[in-house]
Simulated assay, not measured.
Amino acid sequence: MNLRRMSRTAMLYVVAGLLVSVWVFPVLWALLTSFKTERDVLAYPPTFIFTPTLSNYREVLFGSGSILPNLWSSAVVSCSATLLTMLFAVPAAYALARLRYPGRRASGFYVLATQMLPPVGLIIPYYLVMQRTGGLDSYPGLVMTYLTFSLPFAIWLMVSYFEDIPYEMEEAALLDRAGRFRTLWYVILPQVRGGMAVTTVFVFLNAWNEFLFAVVLGGNHVRPVTVAMFNFISVEQTQWARLAAGAMLAMAPVILVGLAAQRHIVKGLTVGAVKGGGRR
């Protein structure tokens, strides 16, 4: 039995290692490429032993093609969109999960329908609206655009966490005359902190990595880093080393956010494994 258990555990580790390597290999390859010269990048067969250089990072950060302003634009847009999304998504998800009001099913279906719309089909309407309202190449215009497609996702993700909270906890607080808002703030929200962390990280990731709306609705003033990295790609030449360095710098804030919220993310992803005792 012990031998069988050990072999099964070893097999699981091997399978998990293979699955992780599918994600890790491109990242490691890009990391190695960011320290190469253009000559080493284009060498065939690929070189694994080379003299590393920081010139690509210096050029990307402080050269003529610096992406520092673009990192700032991405940070402003992503943080603002995430903050507004969570500000509206939490009470909306609470209402859909806990309250009984006329039109609840219709409003839930509307939120789901907006989440299912293909983003590419909304580019032209968004562009025309932003052009008429002066929202092109501006932070408010891009933030409001991101809010429209991140809000339905956040609402439906948060609904599942609110539904796992037993109704008895809320009823006890209401019987003590805590009020609906105080019950939400002091009783319900502490129970769904993990779910809020997961939702916040996912919304931030979607906003940070978004490219389609940024390239169409942005401009010279507001240009997120996902759009700025295309400056290293041209018809004549693609600067692979600098592009890889820019990609590593663009990944760094996302990795830091994930590490900072790791404990809450794990708790939030596993909270639905055991359903609460609430009524449906």
Score class of each variant (00 low, 15 high):
Arg263Ser: 14
Glu163Met: 12
Gly63Tyr: 01
Thr53Arg: 03
Trp185Gly: 01
Leu18Lys: 00
Met196Phe: 07
Val222Arg: 02
Ser138Glu: 07
Met229Ser: 01
Trp29His: 04
Ile255Lys: 06
Gly65Tyr: 03
Phe48Leu: 09
Ala97Arg: 10
Ile123Asp: 06
Arg39Thr: 03
Ala244Cys: 13
Ala252Asp: 09
Ala10Glu: 04
Asn2Tyr: 00
Glu236Tyr: 13
Val254Glu: 10
Ser138Gly: 10
Phe153Gly: 07
Val24Glu: 08
Thr199Ala: 13
Gly277Met: 07
Val120Ala: 10
Glu38Pro: 04
Leu184Ile: 03
Glu170Ala: 11
Ala106Trp: 02
Met158Leu: 15
Phe153Pro: 08
Met169Gln: 10
Thr47Gly: 01
Pro45Gly: 05
Leu117Gly: 09
Leu151Gly: 08
Gly135Asn: 01
His221Pro: 00
Leu3Val: 08
Met11Arg: 12
Pro119Gly: 15
Ile233Gln: 14
Ala241Asn: 12
Phe213Thr: 02
Trp23Ala: 12
Leu96Glu: 06
Leu18Phe: 13
Leu42Lys: 02
Glu170Phe: 04
Ala178Asp: 05
Ala244Ser: 15
Val159Ala: 05
Arg223Phe: 04
Met144Leu: 15
Thr37Leu: 01
Thr133Pro: 00
Leu19Ser: 08
Tyr94His: 12
Arg132Thr: 12
Phe230Trp: 11
Gly108Trp: 00
Thr82Arg: 01
Met116Gly: 09
Tyr110Ala: 14
Met130His: 07
Trp156Gly: 03
Arg4Glu: 11
Phe232His: 03
Ala245Trp: 01
Phe25Trp: 12
Leu18Glu: 00
Thr183Arg: 09
Tyr44Thr: 05
Val111Arg: 04
Ala228Val: 10
Ala228Ile: 06
Trp240Gln: 07
Thr9Tyr: 11
Arg58Asn: 12
Leu12Val: 12
Leu83Gly: 02
Val254Met: 14
Leu84Phe: 06
Gly277Asp: 11
Met144His: 00
Val254Ala: 07
Thr37Ser: 12
Leu61Tyr: 01
Gln191Gly: 14
Val143Lys: 06
Asp176Glu: 13
Val225His: 04
Asn231Asp: 15
Gly268Pro: 00
Val77Lys: 05
Phe204Glu: 02
Ala252Leu: 15
Leu3Cys: 00
Leu142His: 04
Ser64Arg: 14
Leu256Trp: 08
Val120Phe: 11
Tyr57Asp: 02
Val215Ile: 14
Tyr161Phe: 14
Gly246Met: 10
Tyr13Gly: 10
Phe232Asn: 02
Val257Met: 15
Phe62Gly: 10
Ser64Gln: 14
Arg58Gly: 14
Met229Leu: 15
Gly121Tyr: 07
Leu212Asn: 03
Phe50Ser: 03
Leu151Cys: 06
Val76Lys: 07
Gly194Glu: 04
Leu189His: 09
Leu117Tyr: 06
Thr226Gly: 11
Leu157His: 13
Leu18Cys: 12
Val15Leu: 15
Val187Glu: 09
Arg279Tyr: 07
Leu3Ser: 01
Ala172Gly: 08
Trp23Cys: 11
Asn206Lys: 09
Phe211Pro: 01
Thr145Lys: 04
Tyr139Arg: 07
Trp208Gly: 02
Ala273Tyr: 11
